[in-house]
Computed example of a mutant assay.
Amino acid sequence: MHWNALGVAAFVGIAIVAVAWWLGPSLFGIANAEAGDVVEAKVTAPVECAGQGGHETVTFTLGGQPRTGTLDGCGHGKDERVSIRVESGAGSGTVNVTAADTAEGARDLRRPVGLFLVALSCFAGATYAFIVRLR
């Protein structure tokens, strides 16, 4: 076994992990934070969570103007305060809003675990190449 072969395998593994890190969150399906304004709202028409498609009505102030929005959620109490995200450039009338503290999927560990798995697969491939080279 030549040390050059091990050096090349190590370099390729490090290069793959570096490229995965450089590509960033999009490589593992992590979306960037949504654009929009986060404001405090009051639930005016709560909906129970018993059925599907719960949409509660909320009132909030945006740009000094009172607004009404439809929150895709359920289980809040009447007059309960919630933080919502309003899309930038929301038109007049009732607008669709989302809860400010929600995200699709788990963002906390996806990237580090994904990078660890990429590094582990590089190590496993190098180990396999080493074993094949010995025989």
Rank of each mutant, 00 (worst) to 15 (best):
M1H: 08
H2W: 07
W3E: 02
A5K: 11
L6I: 14
A9L: 09
A9S: 11
A10F: 09
A10E: 03
F11N: 01
F11C: 12
V12Y: 08
V12F: 14
G13Q: 07
I16E: 02
V19N: 02
A20H: 04
W21P: 02
W22D: 11
G24T: 08
G24S: 09
P25V: 05
P25M: 06
P25W: 00
S26D: 11
S26P: 07
L27S: 04
L27E: 06
F28E: 03
F28M: 05
F28Y: 06
N32M: 09
N32S: 15
A33R: 15
E34C: 00
E34G: 09
A35M: 12
A35F: 09
D37H: 13
D37L: 12
V39W: 04
E40N: 14
A41K: 02
A41R: 00
K42W: 11
A45S: 10
A45Q: 12
P46G: 01
V47G: 05
C49A: 14
A50P: 01
G51E: 15
Q52V: 11
Q52N: 11
H55A: 13
H55P: 00
H55L: 14
T57H: 09
V58R: 00
V58P: 04
T59N: 10
T61A: 08
T61Y: 10
L62Y: 08
L62R: 10
L62V: 06
G63D: 09
G63Y: 01
G63W: 03
G63F: 02
G64L: 06
G64W: 07
R67Y: 06
T70C: 05
L71A: 03
L71W: 03
L71N: 03
G73S: 15
G73P: 00
G73T: 11
C74T: 07
G75S: 09
H76L: 05
G77H: 08
G77V: 05
K78F: 05
K78C: 00
D79A: 10
E80C: 00
E80Q: 13
R81L: 11
S83I: 00
I84M: 04
V86P: 03
V86T: 07
E87D: 15
E87H: 12
E87I: 10
S88M: 08
G89W: 02
G89I: 03
A90N: 02
G91A: 14
G93L: 04
N96V: 13
T98H: 11
A100I: 02
A100F: 00
A103G: 11
A103Q: 15
E104F: 12
E104C: 00
G105C: 06
D108F: 12
R111F: 05
P112T: 02
P112S: 04
P112F: 05
P112L: 04
V113D: 00
G114H: 01
G114C: 06
L115Y: 01
L115E: 03
F116C: 08
F116Y: 10
F116W: 07
L117I: 08
L117D: 00
V118L: 03
S121T: 15
C122W: 07
F123K: 04
T127M: 14
T127Y: 11
A129V: 11
I131K: 13
V132C: 12
V132K: 15
V132Q: 14
L134N: 12
L134M: 12
L134F: 11
R135Q: 15
